[in-house]
Structures are given as structure tokens and as C-alpha cells.
Design a protein around this nucleic acid. Structure first.
Lengths: 243, 243
DNA sequence: TCCTTAAAGTATGAATATGCAACTAAAAGT
DNA sequence: ACTTTTAGTTGCATATTCATACTTTAAGGA
């Protein structure tokens, strides 16, 4: 098979980026009471990977992460935070990139920039599942949501990166009230509770959850949402201060 | 003035390290009811800086941080954690290193590795003040403890790095009980309380603090400490599970 | 129309944690 | 022995959280 122009261009673009450093993004979404993560599937091989990329020579690292995120989801203004640097001494020096390139018709030189050791800065992002438009990158055939529990084996240490992102998310959930970024503009109290229960992986008492959330005085109660179901209609709420 | 051999060797050692990445360490100590930070003073200029260094090509980033820490304090087995990557796009591209080298008799080439953009991984460390042996590095005349409140102006964004390390420390204090790493092996309840009050920058009620700490069941009560003062002798305690 | 069902919203008492103040203990000086 | 001073403890009021029960309301059906 002959390599695509996009791939060749990318493999020749090492001089644009800071050497030895990459960014990997754990992009969380929430749907059907499940926490989801965006995962790419490589072309021609069966490798799965987190969305990632490199830092341009003159680019703030947060801007690099935002750029990667926008490319994969179509969304600007995403809630985004770095959480850890992964710095194993052999990180990136396995044959992941070599095998991928070979499968796509390119043999990488031994000193190719993609074959060097890479640190990776882990970012986690929280997006409104209903607004994200998953879009594959130059390496990938697909860009899809996976249930956190049903993640495939990912390349390198990407499974560990997801785990650590999740731990950070749990720590931040009450601390900084980041959870709202995973929901649409308006939501019911039940949806919010389901989000918390999913992330924390434990059931919460409805009455107490409601009281706690309302006591924070960050929720604006809107009109009711008639669902057509045979029971009292829930209120819709809006978070008063996103991010 | 003619440059020292050590400095010349260091300036020629760029090929040993990962390019574009450094480590900066905020080393906290506690003494006289004050939180202290280790700060270096540059030779021949009046620049102050955090202890820092670079990552060897085959070295885990945590090992690099531990190496830097051991060089500055003489201590192994230090409590150490990365907390943030500082990645401004122009970071490192000011004239700090050029001025320093010039003052020490070396004119750096425009493309010298020290004049490139650098990301920096911030680590904070908690050490037992009484055991640390502050030791300057090749750039520095002195390596000294400074009260957090009395820090001098530091180079680059190092003052901001200290601020962010302090915020992280405050977050972690109860969360992971890291505070004990700032105290000697044994300590009185009063010393522990003073530590907490200093870090959190607020007074705590003695009775409540004691009850809370004891209820955690992580303190082992040892014999009493006779101070020679005209009052009841306090107990000494030991933390049961360092780190 | 009115009763039933189911989920939303609210209220209440118990358990636990925290804030505040007082009390007892003990080491050393007078 | 009495005082001073700090350590350690105790009791109680208040606040927060936990667990459960009660009330409300939209829609379906007798």
C-alpha cells in the first residue's frame, strides 16, 4: 500500500514541534449513565490510542492541547486541565510507531523523531457529549466514544493515563465542581446525580444530593420538563458559572 | 574573570539531556514556625532561582527530580511529587542565562541549548529541615532556606512556581497527610499544629486539632518530652506510615 | 372523575463532626 | 505548699451529613 500524502507530510514535520514531548488527551463525555472516553483506532493496524499531538515550537502547551481537542471534537472553549507528566525512561521507544508506519507503507529511519523517547503531558477534558463531533486524525480510521469500563487495550501507557485522569477527575469533582462541563446547558437533578454516581462509582441518596447541590447556590431552576411519563415532571437546571 | 571548569563542562553537556525540558523543585522545610523554601543565589549576578536541572536522556523524570534533590539537600528518600508543567511559549527565551554566563566569562552562542525555549516540570518536595544539608550547584554561590513570606525576586516564573506549589501543598495537606514529611521522626502535637497553622495560614483550635489527629489513628504516642520548662511535659508522637 | 403509579421534591429525626469553653494534669519556680 | 504555664481532656451547643418517611404531581386507566 502506498502512503497518503497527509501521513508523509506529518512524518516530515518533526522540525515544527518541540522534541521529546507530546500531549495526550483523555476526553471525557457522559451519555446513557456511562462515562465515555474518546479513542482513536489506527489505520491498517489494530492499535487504539488516546487523541494526542505535539507542541509547536512557539505554542503555549495549553494552546497545543486546545488545538488537539478542537481537531478531535470540533469544540472550542472546552474544559481542559493538565494533570500529570508521564516520563518513563523508555516511553515511546517501543515499536508502536515503526509498526504503524510500516503497515502504511513507510519505513522510518532509526533516528526518526517519532522513534525517540517522549515525555507526555496528560490533559483531561470534559465535553458535552451531545455537541462533540468525533473526528479521526491522520493516523486513524475512527474516532469513537468508548465506555470507560469497556476500553480496548491502548498503545503505550495510555490505559494508565486514562486511569490517572479518572482519579484526578474524582478528586476535582466536588472540589472545583467541574462535573457540569460534562452535561448539556440544561439538565435535571436526576441527570446530575447519575453523573456523580457514575464518576464516583457509588450510589448517592437522592434527597441529600438534591439538598447539597441546591445549598451550593450555583444552580438556577428553570421551567419544568414534561417528559410524557406518568409522574411528576422534574425541573430543569442551569449551572450559573461554567468553568 | 575566567570561567570555572565545572561551568564550562556543564554548558557543553547539553547532549546528555532531553532538549527543551527542565525540572524545577520547590523544596519545603519547616523551622521556627515558618515554612521555608530552598533558594539558590547565582554566582556573579544577583539572580535567585529554585533548584533545578535537566533530565538525562535515559532517566525517568522522577529519578531526575530525586537526583536534583539529593544534590541540593544530601537527602535520599524524600517526599516528592510533580505538580504542574509550566509551558509558556517564551519560557526560557529571556536573557537570564546569557547574562549569567557573560558575568562568568562565557559568551553563549545564539543557538546554545540553554537559550532555547524550555518547558519546566514543577516538583515539590517536603524535607526534614534538621536533616537537610543545603548545597549550592555549579551556577550558585549559596543554597539557603528562605521564609516563604520573605522570598526574594526569583528568575523567570519561579515565584509563580512557588505559589502554585504552595497551593498544591495546601490541597494535599489533609487529603494525603503529607505534612508529616516536614517534621522530624518525632514531634509534639504542638509542633504538628504549628505546621498545619503555618501551611494553611490560619489558627486552629488546640482541643479540636488534637482530637482530629488522634482520631485518624495514624499517630503513635511515645514517651513524654521533658523540656525543662515550668509546665506539663508534652508527649512525643511518631507518624506510623511515612509517605 | 377519581384512583393508581412512579418519580420529583421536601421534611424530619438520628448520627456524626466541628466550634467553643471549661476543667484537670503536671513540671518547675517561688 | 502554692503559683504559673502549657498539655491533655471533657462537655455541650451548633452544624453538617445520613437515612428514612412523607408530600406532590403528571399521566394512565378503571
Amino acid at each position: 500500500m502506498s502512503p497518503s500524502k497527509e501521513l508523509v507530510d506529518f512524518l516530515n514535520s518533526g522540525h515544527l514541534y518541540m522534541p521529546g514531548i507530546s500531549i495526550d488527551c483523555v476526553i471525557f463525555g457522559f451519555h446513557d449513565r456511562q462515562l465515555k472516553v474518546l479513542v482513536l483506532q489506527f489505520k491498517s493496524t489494530d492499535g487504539y490510542a488516546l487523541p494526542g499531538g505535539f507542541i509547536r515550537k512557539e505554542e503555549h502547551i495549553d494552546d497545543a492541547a486546545r488545538r488537539i481537542l478542537e481537531e478531535r471534537t470540533g469544540l472550542k472553549e472546552i474544559y481542559l486541565e493538565q494533570f500529570h507528566v508521564f516520563g518513563d525512561s523508555e516511553r515511546g521507544r517501543d515499536d508502536t510507531h515503526r509498526k504503524f508506519s510500516r503497515a502504511n507503507g513507510i519505513e522510518l529511519e532509526a533516528d526518526h523523531w517519532l522513534l525517540q523517547r517522549f515525555l507526555s503531558i496528560g490533559y483531561y477534558a470534559l465535553v458535552d457529549f451531545s455537541r462533540a463531533m468525533p473526528t479521526p486524525d491522520v493516523f486513524s480510521d475512527t474516532c469513537q466514544w468508548y465506555d470507560l469500563a469497556g476500553l480496548p487495550d491502548l498503545i503505550l501507557d495510555h490505559n494508565r493515563i486514562v486511569q490517572q485522569a479518572l482519579e484526578t477527575l474524582r478528586l476535582m469533582l466536588d472540589n472545583k465542581l467541574v462535573g457540569f462541563n460534562l452535561l448539556p446547558e440544561t439538565f435535571t437533578m436526576n441527570e446530575l446525580q447519575a453523573l456523580y454516581e457514575t464518576i464516583l462509582d457509588k450510589p448517592l441518596l437522592r434527597a441529600n444530593f438534591q439538598r447539597k447541590m441546591l445549598s451550593l447556590e450555583i444552580l438556577e431552576r428553570l421551567e419544568k420538563k414534561w417528559t410524557g411519563k406518568a409522574h411528576k415532571a422534574p425541573y430543569l437546571y442551569r449551572f450559573q458559572d461554567r468553568h
